[in-house]
Design a protein around this nucleic acid. Structure first.
Length: 651
RNA sequence: GCCGGUGUAGCUCAGUGGUAGAGCACCUCACUCGUAAUGAGGUGGCCGUCGGUUCGAUCCCGACCACCGGCUCCA
C-alpha cells in the first residue's frame, strides 16, 4: 500500500497510508479534534470524514468554526428533512435540496401541498431522525446502479441521465433514506440540533415554468442555539426595516387597489424624498454636461417596431390603445416602457456633426411595464416606474471617457452620498448577438479600460451581455449587508442602427454613433425602497421630509417656539411646530417614532436666552442647548454637505 | 402567470352560523407639563368583491380581486 503526504494548515506534513480517511487523521491528531471534526478539506474540496484520501494533498479538518462546515450542516439538515418527508409522506418525489445562504431548502413532489401544520409535524419528525444519530454513509455507484436505486423517483432519474460518462456518482444514506447526492455530509444525524423550518412555497422543477411545480420547504440551521436565535432575531429586524411597513408607518406612499397593483401614490413625505433625489441627480447631470429633455409618455406603436423592442419586449408592454378620433384612420398607440427610442429621436431631430458629440440627454421620466402580478413587491417591483434615465450618443472612441464619467457619477452618488458599498460586474458578448467580433472586442475593451482607469475591481459574467452590447451591472450593499441590483451602464450598437442615427465626421462622411444607456438610481421607486431599508426610515437630514420639529414645553413658550420655527423655515429648513396641548413626553415620543432628525425644544429658559434645546434623533436624553443661529448654521451645513448624520437605527 | 397562505375600524389585531370587539390613531373636555404614551368621554366597520348553501353567512362552499412567502444560491 502506498503512502501519501498530507500537508496540514500549520505547514507540518503527515504521512499516512493511501485510503486513510479524514476522520482517522483527526483521531490520530487527538481525541478533541476527532470530536469536533465535521468534515475534511482535501485540496480545497470538502470531504466527508469517512471518505478515503488517495493522494498527496493540502489537508485540513473542518470544525464548527469553518464556514464550509456550516454549508455541510445545512445540507445534512436538508437531508433529514427529506428523511422526515419520506417517513410522513411515503412515495414523495425527491427533487433538489441544497444548502443556501443562511439555510437550506428541499423540493418535493407530493400529492398535496404542505401546510403550516405539516411544517411543525415535519420538524418534530426531524428531531426524531436526529435523535437516532444515524451515520451518513457515502457510496459511489455506477450509472446502472443509480438508475436501479432510484427507479421509483423520476426526478432523480432525470438528473442521473444528465451525468457525464466519467462523472463520479455518489449516494448518501442516513437510516432509512437514501439520496442521490454530491455531498459532503456530517458524520451523523445526531449533530443536527439547531434548525427550524421557515416556510413553504411552490417552486418549478428546475426553475422552469413549463415544468411541474414542486413543493419547496425552506429552513435554517446552525451549530449553536444562540446562532439560530440570532438569525431568527435578524429576520425580525429585517422585517422592521421592511420598506412596506415603514412606508406605511411614516406615511410615505400607498398602493391602492382601486387604481391597481404596482402603481404608487407618493404621499407628501415620500414625494418630498422623490423630489429631492430627482433634483440631486438632475443637478449632478447638468454639472456633468448632460442636457435635460422631456419626451412623450405614449407613442405610435410603430416606433417600438422600428426600435426592435416590440417583439422582444411585448410581454411587459401594456397593450395598445386606439386613438385618433375624427381622423381618417385609427392609429395604435403604446405607453412607453423605456425612453431610449425617444431620446434617439431627439438626437435625430437635426443633422449632427462630430462636433456635437458626445451628446448626453437625460430625463427623469415615468414609464410603465406590465410586470407579472406575482412578481410585484412594494416599491421594489412596480408597474409604473420613474427612471433617472440618460443616453449618451458618441463615437466608439469617445465611449471610454463617457463610461468613466458614468462610473464616476455612480461612485459619487451611490457610494459617497448614501454610503452604499458597490460591486461591479462586466457582462460580455452573449451567444446570440448583433455586430461583428471586432466591434465586440473593442466595446468590451472600452468597458474594461474605463473600469480599470477608475481602479475598480469587477467580476465578469461571460456571455451575460445584452444582444446589442456589453454592460456593466452595479450592485450595492446596504447597512445590514443585503445586496440590491443597482445602476447599469450599457453600450448599444443596435438602436443607432435601427433608428438610422448618423453624424457627419471630419471626413465629411456619414458615421454611426454608439449609444450608452445608463441610470444612476435605476428607478426612483426601487431606490427609495432601498433607502428606506438602508436607513431604517431614519433619513439623513438633507433627505428627511421633516427636518426639525419645534416643541414648546408649555403654552407660555408657544410664541417663542413659533419664532424659532419661522426663522428656520426662512432658512429653507423643513420644520414643523408642534404646539398641541399634548404632554411634552407625548410630543417627544411622537417625533422620535416619526424619525424626525432633530427636535428643537423651547422652554422658558430657552425662550429667555434665545436658545433651543436640540434633541437628536436616537440620542435619548442627551441634548445641546445652543443659540438659535448656531442651530440654524449647523443645519445649513449638514444639508449642504448631504451629511449622513444624524442617522442610525433608532429602533 | 404558477403554488401555498392571508383579507374584520385609518393602523395593529381578537372573535362568533343568530346582523361585531380591543389597543393605538382621530374628535371633544379637563390638564400647561423640562425630555419616549395625562385622564375622562365620543365618532368610526356592506367583516375584500360577487355568487351559492342555509330560516339566517363576517363565519361554510365556489369564483374573482388584492396582499404576503416563494418559483435553480442546480444531485
Amino acid at each position: 500500500m502506498s503512502t501519501i503526504r498530507l500537508t496540514l494548515p500549520d505547514g507540518s506534513v503527515r504521512e499516512a497510508a493511501a485510503g486513510i480517511t479524514g476522520g482517522e487523521v483527526a483521531r490520530d491528531i487527538g481525541p478533541g479534534l476527532a470530536r469536533a471534526a465535521i468534515a475534511a478539506r482535501v485540496d480545497g474540496e470538502v470531504y466527508d470524514l469517512d471518505r478515503p484520501i488517495e493522494t498527496d494533498a493540502e489537508f485540513a479538518i473542518l470544525t464548527e468554526k469553518d464556514p464550509e462546515a456550516l454549508t455541510v450542516l445545512r445540507h445534512s439538515t436538508a437531508h433529514i428533512l427529506a428523511t422526515a418527508v419520506r417517513e410522513l409522506f411515503p412515495g414523495a418525489g425527491i427533487g433538489f435540496g441544497p444548502a443556501i445562504a443562511n439555510g437550506f431548502y428541499y423540493d418535493f413532489e407530493v400529492p398535496r401541498p404542505f401546510t403550516p401544520d405539516d411544517l411543525e409535524t415535519l420538524e418534530d419528525k426531524m428531531r426524531e431522525v436526529a435523535a437516532r444519530d444515524d451515520p451518513f454513509v457515502r457510496e459511489v455507484v455506477t450509472r446502472a446502479e443509480a438508475d436501479d436505486r432510484f427507479a421509483d423517483d423520476p426526478l432523480k432519474l432525470e438528473r442521473i441521465a444528465e451525468f457525464a460518462a466519467d462523472e463520479i456518482i455518489s449516494v448518501y444514506t442516513d437510516g432509512p433514506f437514501t439520496d442521490l447526492c454530491r455531498g459532503p455530509h456530517m458524520p451523523g444525524t445526531g449533530r443536527l440540533k439547531h434548525f427550524k423550518l421557515l416556510s413553504t412555497a411552490g417552486a418549478y422543477w428546475r426553475g422552469n415554468e413549463n415544468r411541474q411545480m414542486l413543493q419547496r420547504i425552506y429552513g435554517t440551521a446552525w451549530f449553536k442555539k444562540d446562532d439560530l436565535e440570532a438569525h431568527l432575531h435578524q429576520l425580525e429586524e429585517a422585517r422592521k426595516r421592511d420598506h412596506r411597513v415603514l412606508g406605511k408607518q411614516l406615511d410615505l406612499y400607498s398602493i391602492q387597489e382601486t387604481v391597481g397593483p404596482g402603481l404608487v401614490f407618493w404621499h407628501p413625505k415620500g414625494a418630498m424624498i422623490k423630489f429631492l433625489l430627482s433634483r440631486y441627480v438632475e443637478d449632478d447631470n447638468l454639472a456633468c454636461g448632460y442636457d435635460l429633455v422631456y419626451t412623450p409618455n405614449i407613442t405610435r406603436e410603430e416606433l417600438f417596431k422600428i426600435s426592435g423592442h416590440l417583439p422582444l419586449y411585448e410581454a411587459v408592454q401594456y397593450p395598445p390603445m386606439a386613438a385618433g378620433a375624427g381622423e381618417a384612420e385609427e392609429v395604435r398607440y403604446r405607453v412607453k416602457p423605456m425612453n431610449c427610442p425617444m431620446h434617439a429621436l431627439v438626437y435625430k431631430s437635426q443633422q449632427r456633426s462630430y462636433r456635437d458629440l458626445p451628446l448626453r440627454l437625460s430625463e427623469v421620466a415615468n414609464v410603465y411595464r406590465d410586470e407579472k402580478s406575482g412578481t410585484l413587491h412594494g416599491l421594489l417591483r412596480v408597474r409604473g416606474l420613474c427612471m433617472d434615465d440618460a443616453h449618451i450618443f458618441c463615437t466608439l472612441d469617445q465611449a471610454e471617457d463617457e463610461i468613466f464619467l458614468c462610473l464616476d457619477q455612480v461612485d459619487r452618488i451611490i457610494r459617497q452620498t448614501f454610503g452604499f458599498r458597490l460591486q461591479f460586474e462586466l457582462s460580455t458578448r452573449p451567444e446570440h448577438r448583433l455586430g461583428n467580433d471586432e466591434t465586440w472586442d473593442k466595446a468590451e475593451d472600452i468597458l474594461r479600460q474605463a473600469l480599470g482607469r477608475k481602479g475598480i475591481e469587477f467580476d465578469e459574467d461571460v456571455g451575460g451581455g445584452a444582444f446589442y452590447g456589453p454592460k456593466i451591472d452595479i450592485r450595492f450593499e446596504d447597512a445590514i449587508g443585503r445586496l440590491w441590483q443597482g445602476p447599469t451602464i450599457q453600450l448599444d450598437f443596435q438602436l443607432p442602427e435601427r433608428l438610422d442615427l448618423e453624424y457627419t465626421g471630419s471626413d465629411n462622411q456619414p458615421h454611426r454613433p454608439v449609444m450608452i444607456h445608463r441610470a444612476i438610481y435605476g428607478t426612483l421607486e426601487r431606490f427609495i425602497g432601498n433607502l428606506i431599508e438602508h436607513f431604517a426610515g431614519a433619513f439623513p437630514l438633507w433627505l428627511a421630509p421633516e427636518q426639525v420639529r419645534v416643541i414648546p414645553i408649555a403654552d407660555a413658550q408657544a410664541e417663542a417656539a413659533r419664532a424659532v420655527a419661522d426663522r428656520l423655515k426662512a432658512a429653507g429648513i423643513r420644520v414643523h411646530l408642534d404646539d398641541r396641548g399634548e404632554t411634552l413626553n407625548y410630543r417627544i415620543r411622537e417625533a422620535e417614532v416619526n424619525k424626525i432628525p432633530y427636535m428643537a425644544i423651547v422652554g422658558q429658559r430657552e425662550a429667555d436666552a434665545g436658545t433651543v434645546a436640540v434633541r437628536t434623533r436616537g440620542a435619548g436624553k442627551k441634548q445641546d442647548i445652543i443659540p438659535v443661529e448656531e442651530f440654524e448654521a449647523q443645519l445649513r451645513e449638514q444639508v449642504a454637505s448631504k451629511a449622513l448624520v444624524p442617522y442610525g437605527d433608532t429602533g
